[in-house]
């Protein structure tokens, strides 16, 4: 079967190259998930979105500028997630795009990042036909919940380990990307249960296909870009990072 997967990875890769010269593989498209999984993923995602709303409302009361801040940063992260990053293995013949959830989790916190991801996914589903409305819950789980929390905790752990700002950003970007693809693979892997397939095997194979194509490299690239972004913002406007709680004191130099 491993040989089949290799051939399959090539087919998958060629399919995506043919689609607008861009790879948008982390969204589960409309109609893929059966009803029971649609309900399950919505049930999993909604409490996180609800807590995200609560966080925004609470912070809005303390700091009224918070709502437009989440709106503009959400839009910035959305535009960042549209950056056409060239796939190095193909010498730039195809491009991929970052998730952006790692960056939004670092800047806004994990729960608000889930909310922003949910809105971004709704916009993408409606206006770009990436993802879908019935798969919104599933996509919020993989991209919003797993992506945001893994990226946020990676950043915090890296900070605790006293790594430089670049490496903290790198780990947040890379880990959130990896977890997003893992989440998508789990959701797709779960579909084979009860149909003669093995969940673990299918998940591992789908995740393997993601990593073997451009997405494995993309995780590293997104990490580097997020690292560069944080360092750039720190050098130009450290007050922003202080305001968002990424650094504790902008008068003391931070290792970059």
């Amino acid at each position: 079967m491993s040989r089949a997967v290799t051939v399959f990875a090539i087919i998958f890769f060629l399919l995506f190259i043919s689609s607008e010269n861009a790879v948008y593989a982390m969204h589960i498209t409309e109609g893929i998930l059966p009803p029971k999984w649609v309900i399950t993923w919505f049930a999993v995602a909604m409490p996180f979105v609800g807590i995200g709303i609560y966080h925004v409302k609470r912070k809005k009361r303390q700091m009224p500028v918070y709502l437009p801040l989440v709106g503009t940063l959400g839009a910035a992260v959305f535009v960042f997630s549209c950056f056409p990053i060239p796939v190095i293995a193909l010498n730039g013949m195809a491009t991929s795009h970052p998730c952006g959830t790692g960056m939004s989790a670092v800047l806004l916190g994990p729960f608000v990042s889930v909310l922003v991801a949910a809105i971004a996914l709704l916009i993408q589903a409606l206006f770009l036909a990436h993802g879908g409305l019935t798969t919104l819950g599933g996509n919020i789980f993989s991209m919003g919940i797993l992506g945001s929390f893994s990226g946020y905790f990676a950043f915090k752990i890296a900070q605790r380990c006293r790594l430089s700002l670049f490496w903290c950003g790198f780990l947040a970007g890379m880990v959130s990307d990896l977890f997003t693809y893992l989440g998508t693979s789990i959701e797709l892997g779960l579909l084979v249960i009860g149909k003669g397939g093995s969940f673990i095997k299918a998940t591992a194979e789908i995740f393997g296909v993601f990593m073997m194509t451009s997405q494995g490299v993309l995780c590293i690239v997104e990490g580097i870009v997020v690292g560069f972004i944080l360092v750039f913002v720190y050098k130009r406007k450290p007050g922003i990072l202080l305001h968002l709680g990424l650094i504790k004191d902008d008068t003391k130099p931070v290792q970059i």
Binding site: V65, P68, L69, G71, T72, L73, A75, A76, V79, F80, F83, I85, M103, L107, I224, V225, V226, G227, F228, I229, L230, V231, F232, V233, R236, K237, I240, H243
Partner: peptide, 18 residues
């Protein structure tokens, strides 16, 4: 590197715009 600068500028502008 250019993408990093572009993303950084985006964050700075988003903050100012807010």
């Amino acid at each position: 590197k250019s993408f990093g600068i572009l993303g950084g500028m985006l964050v700075i502008r988003a903050f100012a715009r807010a």
